[in-house]
Each structure stands twice: as structure tokens, then as C-alpha cells.
């Protein structure tokens, strides 16, 4: 199943790259190379850089260490935010799921949480914690926490009654039943929410870094190349973000497959 998915994804990527290559080849020499930047014209801009110039740019960014260093900074922020956010979110979600008598997640507070974009909190966090690492990590963490909280809450709420009753008849109660019955059954829902949270974390960090573009990072690289503008740098940065999202999602997917081997193939 996973292998088929990877093959399909690879095919789609190659197709996309090929289409881009054709577009860039056609556009070469036909597109304008002057761009109005609001106050002045910038000359010699490649709007659709061809593959050779993209590879050249990627080579430069890699060799100079700019790209690896930027990626590392963004990656660390994402990891810290994910760790903090998912720990808080999952623990709170498990607790509310266990305590809640309400069957539905239609409560107003849930909707308010779910549909408030985490990025809306950026000005607030900047006001509270200033520009810097704390704001960025907290920003990711808050988005991740909401998503995983809902996942864990839902996961606990949707545990079928039959398993709880069978366990109770076998003498399992309280924390033991929660650990042995509720947690394994809630796990798929929690993990699904974690996958969404990973994607969200990347979106959040790139936008936050674009807005507060100071320390080298992927968002910073994007903002900087936008200011010149240097389209090859932009595309390489965007590609790097895409690659990191893809790899982290794939890792999550593999972990998920491993942890749910007990499920039928159809599930």
C-alpha cells in the first residue's frame, strides 16, 4: 500500500517537474526580464528559471552551507513546536475525551478552536514574547496543540462500547483499562491528527519566518530572494520546504503503519 503511494507520488512529482521544464524552456527569451519592484526596475530577472540554472543555484546554496543551515533552523523550530504542542494537545485531548459526557464535537468552543488559524496569534505572541524563538515555537505549538487535542479527544470518544464492556467483565478498570483499551483504540485518530499537525507546523513556520525574516531560515531565504528578486533561490527554497514536508509525512506514515499492523488491510 505504502509502496504504491510512493510510486504514485514520485510519478506526480516527475510529471510536475517535466511540465515546469517545458514551460521554462518555452518561456526562455520570451518572458520579460525586467520586474517593477514598486520603486524601481530590476534587470536580468529570470521569471521561470530553467533546470540548469536551478541546479546551479541549488549547488551554490548547498555548497555555501546557506541552505543546510537555513533548513536546520526551520527544522528545529518545527520539531520543538511539534513536540511541545503535541504533548500538551494529546494529554489535554485524552483528559477531555475521558471526562466529556457530550457525544459530539459540535460545542462552540471546539469550533472556535478549530477554525481560528494559529497564525492569527502571531501579533499576540510577538507582543508577549517579542520576536525570536519563543514566539515562533509557541506559534507552531499552539496550532499543533489544537489539532492533536481534537484528534485525541475524538479518538477517546469513539472507542467502541463493546471493548470497554468486555474489559470491565475481565476485571479491567480505571487507569489499567484506559492504558490497555482506550489508548490503543484512540491511537489511529491521534496519529491522523498528528499528520495534519506536521503539515500545519511547516506552513506556520514558513509564514512566521517570512514575516519575521531576520535569522537565517527557510522563510528568511524566501523573503530575501523575494526582495531582490531571485526566482531560482525562491524555487529552491520552496522545493526544500516541500521535500521536508514530504519526508516528515512519510516518516509519520511509516510509523503509523507499523503501530497499526493489527488492523485489517481494509481498515
Amino acid at each position: 500500500m505504502t509502496a504504491v503511494r510512493i510510486r504514485r507520488a514520485a510519478f506526480a512529482l516527475i510529471l510536475l517537474a517535466a511540465l515546469y521544464g517545458v514551460a521554462a524552456w518555452i518561456g526562455q527569451g520570451r518572458l520579460p526580464d525586467r520586474v517593477w519592484m514598486g520603486a524601481h526596475y530590476v534587470e536580468n530577472v529570470q521569471l521561470l528559471p530553467t533546470f540548469p540554472s536551478l541546479f546551479e543555484e541549488a549547488g551554490f546554496l548547498l555548497e555555501s552551507g546557506i541552505l543546510p543551515a537555513s533548513a536546520a533552523v526551520s527544522l528545529l523550530r518545527v520539531l520543538a513546536g511539534l513536540l511541545l504542542g503535541s504533548t500538551v494537545g494529546i494529554l489535554v485531548g485524552l483528559a477531555t475525551g475521558r471526562a466529556s459526557r457530550a457525544e459530539s464535537l459540535a460545542d462552540p468552543w471546539v469550533s472556535a478552536l478549530r477554525f481560528t488559524p494559529a497564525l492569527a496569534l502571531l501579533p499576540l505572541f510577538v507582543a508577549w514574547f517579542g520576536y525570536g524563538e519563543i514566539s515562533k515555537v509557541l506559534l507552531i505549538a499552539s496550532g499543533v496543540a489544537v489539532v492533536t487535542l481534537l484528534g485525541a479527544h475524538q479518538g477517546v470518544r469513539s472507542v467502541p462500547r463493546v471493548y470497554l464492556e468486555a474489559a470491565a467483565s475481565l476485571g479491567a478498570r480505571g487507569a489499567f483499562a484506559f492504558r490497555k483499551i482506550v489508548l490503543p483504540l484512540a491511537f489511529p485518530a491521534i496519529f491522523a491528527s498528528l499528520r495534519v499537525a506536521i503539515a500545519l507546523a511547516w506552513v506556520t513556520i514558513v509564514v512566521a519566518e517570512l514575516i519575521d525574516a531576520r535569522m537565517p531560515s527557510l522563510g528568511y531565504l524566501l523573503a530575501l530572494s523575494g526582495a531582490y528578486p531571485r526566482v531560482p533561490t525562491m524555487l529552491v527554497s520552496i522545493g526544500t520546504v516541500g521535500l521536508l514536508v514530504l519526508v516528515s509525512d512519510l516518516l509519520a506514515l511509516l510509523l503509523h503503519a507499523r503501530a497499526t499492523r493489527w488492523m485489517g488491510r481494509a481498515a
Binding site: V162, Y163, E165, A166, A167, P184, W262
Partner: peptide, 9 residues
């Protein structure tokens, strides 16, 4: 139980 309740995990 009447329903299937073997723990699948």
C-alpha cells in the same frame, strides 16, 4: 458479548 469483542490490537 453478542458483538465481536476480541481485542484486535
Amino acid at each position: 458479548l453478542q458483538e465481536q469483542s476480541i481485542f484486535p490490537w
